[in-house]
Structure formats: structure tokens, C-alpha cells
């Protein structure tokens, strides 16, 4: 029998993988993809908790929906900034963005 724990464990592992990607990738596009994985891991956790524990409002599932919406918005803005960086520096490697100092 599959329990809530299984889903949450899967989501945790997925999250760890995404985190690993965010930290190690040296390409901004790849970093954004890793961030997508992070967001999906969180959405999965929300949806599964809702299915198991909240049979009335499904608040977690609604959360998952909103996470998808916000992820889409984040990605479009992220890619727009990435295009700017590319035009500015001619590359999308993370080390071109090293002037983020106040």
C-alpha cells in the first residue's frame, strides 16, 4: 500500500536533486531548469498532503495549481533576464554574472 510518506519521500528526494542542480550547474538555463524541479517537488508534496489529509478543501491541490502558475511567471521573467544577460555578455554561463555587488 502506498502511503503519504512515500509521496513525501519522493518529493524530498526530488527536491534534493533540484537543489544539487541549482548549486552545481554552470549554465543559467540549467539553473532555471533545476529551480523548476524544486518547485515541482514542492507542488507534489502539497498535492499529496491534500489528497491524504484534507478531503474537504483540497487546499494543497489549489496550492499546487498556484505553484504551477507562479513557476510559469517566474520562468518567463527569468528567461527574459537571461536574454538580457546574453545580449550583454554574449554567454549564459553563471560566472558572467559576477557584478551583483552593491
Amino acid at each position: 500500500m502506498i502511503t503519504l510518506g512515500h509521496f513525501l519521500a519522493l518529493s524530498a528526494v526530488l527536491f534534493a536533486i533540484g537543489l544539487f542542480g541549482v548549486l552545481t550547474r554552470r549554465n543559467l538555463i540549467a539553473v532555471l531548469m533545476s529551480v523548476e524541479i524544486l518547485l515541482n517537488a514542492a507542488a507534489l508534496a502539497f498535492a499529496s498532503v491534500a489528497a491524504y489529509k484534507d478531503p474537504v478543501f483540497f487546499a494543497g491541490q489549489l496550492f499546487a495549481l498556484f505553484i504551477i502558475v507562479v513557476a510559469a511567471a517566474e520562468l518567463s521573467i527569468g528567461f527574459a533576464i537571461l536574454l538580457l544577460v546574453f545580449r550583454h555578455a554574449g554567454s549564459v554561463a553563471t560566472d558572467v554574472v559576477e557584478e551583483m555587488r552593491g
Binding site: 500500500m1 503519504l4 519521500a9 527536491f15 537543489l19 544539487f20
Partner: peptide, 24 residues
């Protein structure tokens, strides 16, 4: 990265609750 991701996994694992089977 591996250490940090592992630490995260460890932290999240601690948050898993009691087994829950019924879902709707």
C-alpha cells in the same frame, strides 16, 4: 552540493509524519 542536498534530505525526512493510507 551533495553534502547540502543530503542535509536537506535528512531534514525533510525528519518531517515525514505517521503513515497515512486512506486518500480521497
Amino acid at each position: 552540493a551533495v553534502v547540502l542536498a543530503g542535509a536537506f534530505l535528512y531534514g525533510l525526512w525528519g518531517l515525514l509524519g505517521a503513515p497515512q493510507t486512506a486518500f480521497r
